[in-house]
Structure formats: structure tokens, C-alpha cells
Amino acid sequence: MSTSVELSNVTRQFGEVIAVNDVSIHIQEGEFFSMLGPSGSGKTTCLRLIAGFEQANQGRILIHGQEAAHLPPYQRDVNTVFQDYALFPHMTIEENVAYGLMVKGVPKPERKARTQEALDMVSLSSYGKRTPAQLSGGQRQRVALARALVNRPRVLLLDEPLGALDQQLREQMQTELKSLQRQLGITFIFVTHDQNEALSMSDRVAVFNRGKIEQVDTAKALYNAPKTRFVAEFVGSTNIIAEQLALRLTESARTFSIRPEHIQLDPVQMNPSTTSHPDRLSVQGTISEILYHGASTRFNVTLDTGEQLSAQHTNALADRPLNLSTRVSLSWLPSAMVQLDGAKS
């Protein structure tokens, strides 16, 4: 598969602040690729570098094999969908979508046909005569998509486009975006700080932290096999088994991650033999907090040695009540522990 966008040792510095620090990425043709990270991690700056809104201090940016570092945004075969949509309030939906084509001098008959085609793609074919104020947030988001797609870019850049939507609409738009990307077969580069968005839609995800990439991988690999403590803690919830506890349990002074759903929790009085099970590692403690999440419940446990661990159980499988201050045994398979690079994030 050919490379759609390539960043090679790219750095972007604003005064003394290094926003992007020696970043290299290869994004494949037709891939749904997400850049995930907290605010200030460098993900949006990377997107702006690809779009041409920022210029790199060093490194190379190639779009479909063409050096793009010195090309202005309008000469790059990309289009951007912004978080605030940036629709013209005084224009109709048709006029908003067709605006870029008009600026390029596309003849009116072709402009009209392509505008209608773009509105059909986003299920707004009958909304062309309305204004943005007459649409819901989700519909305005679709208009912004149509305005970008009408130019038929080979790469679509999406800068947190779902951030202003409520949770239910956001989940609906995640499904629609992924379906649209498969239908069009073009490269989507999606920036978000929301781990659920990145994991649910992406073919691969780059996790950013302090201007660098911690890990690039599939969603499944990021969750099940994080390489660093930052990735383990940012992508989903996890327990960090620090060196001191790991040494007591495994005789290895390394740092490990284990997801809460991999930990079995049992009242000590009901299953006193759990700690001696030959296939599992186990510790004991007291439930210090219970967090109900609908489909599941999280139990935070203070161990007898002072450390904190969490276990998460599906409520549909719960067969007994567990209360605050209940003495419990936590046990897990050694294979559920993932060794992390470095002791600290």
C-alpha cells in the first residue's frame, strides 16, 4: 500500500516552546489515521503542518510523494474540517458547500452538480436552501464535511470535528464518519483528545505526548499492549504495578500495566484459597471506593501494603454484593501484565 502522507523528523518550534519534536509518521493511502493526545501534546500542530497552515523548522513533509514544505495550503491535495465548522452564516447550505469551487472558478453547472453530490454523501440533499442557523449541530457538522469533500481531496484533515456535539450525537457521527471514509476510500487524518473516538474509528492511532509520539499502532494493540506508562494510562484505564510491588509478586523489578477488567475480585471470607491458586498472582486489601458505570462497576482497593489497585466487573455477571470496607482478594493471570518501557511517564 502506498504512502499518502509522510512526516520525516519534523520539528515545529514557537520561540522556546517545541510544539512538535522530531516526529516521523507514515500514513497509508486510504487509511483512517488518528492523532490522539491531551491538549498541548502536538497533535493539532502536526495537522496544521500537513495542511500548510504552519511551516516546519526542520524535517520533511510529503503528500503523495510530493514535497509539501513550501506549498501554500491551496496547492496541497488536502482539505480541513475544523472544530467550529467555520460556516458562513449569511449563505445558504448550497452556497457554503460550493464556495471553494466558486473561488477556483469551476463553471456553475459543474459546481451545482458537485455540490449536490457532496450533500447527498452526508444525507443533506434536501437542506440546500437553508442557512446554518436553521440546522442542528450535527447537521452543521455534515455541511462542513460536504464543503471539504466537494473539492474531492485525496486527504481529509479533521481537527476535533465532534468536540461540540453531545455524547449521543457524537457516537452517531463516529459511525457515520467511518462509514463515509470506507465509502470514499480516501485518507482521513483525525485529531482528537478523546480516546473512545480514536479507538472506535481508526485503522491506526498515533499517541502524542509533549510534542513526541509515544506509540503508533492499531487500537487493539494500543489497548492490549501499550509500550509506555503514558500510553497505558491515557488509552483506557489501567493499574500500574510499580517496581516494588512487581518485585514481591514476580521477582522482577520492572513496571507493568494491567487493565481493571483482567483482575478478579473475591471476598476473602468466601474464597480464602484464591491467594494460593497456582496459576494466578494475588494480593489482599479493602474496598475503598465503588464506582457504578452502568454496564460495569469499578472497585478501588487499598492493598494491605498500601498500594491502590482497581478491578472492574460486568454488572450482568455480578452474583454477590460487595460493599465499602469489604476485605477482598485480587487475583490475575501473569499473562495479563504488560511490561512497560521506563519506570515513569
Rank of each mutant, 00 (worst) to 15 (best):
V81W: 06
P132F: 02
I258W: 10
L265A: 09
R210Y: 01
S325T: 07
L291F: 08
E6S: 14
Q195D: 12
Q308R: 13
P161N: 07
S8L: 15
F256P: 05
G105R: 11
N21A: 02
V328R: 00
V268A: 05
A246Y: 03
Q139N: 08
R259M: 04
V268K: 03
S331W: 00
K220H: 03
R154E: 15
A253F: 00
L245C: 09
Q308K: 10
Q244A: 12
V103H: 14
S2L: 12
D159E: 13
R154F: 08
E251R: 12
L169N: 04
S34N: 10
R12G: 00
L165Q: 09
A295P: 02
A118V: 11
T275Q: 13
T238I: 02
E6I: 13
M91W: 05
L281C: 04
V78L: 12
L249N: 05
G30W: 11
F299D: 13
S179Y: 04
K344S: 05
V17L: 15
E29G: 01
G185A: 08
T218G: 01
R48E: 06
P73C: 05
A343W: 09
Y292K: 05
S123G: 04
D203T: 05
G15M: 02
S237D: 15
G40M: 09
E261V: 01
A232Y: 00
A221H: 02
S310C: 15
V216S: 04
I240G: 14
M121V: 02
Q215I: 04
P107A: 15
Q13M: 04
R152C: 11
T218R: 05
G185F: 03
Q339C: 11
M1R: 03
V10N: 01
Q284E: 14
R298C: 13
E95S: 13
M1G: 04
V301I: 04
T275D: 09
L169T: 15
A219N: 03
G59D: 12
E289L: 13
T250N: 02
I213T: 07
L180P: 11
S237V: 12
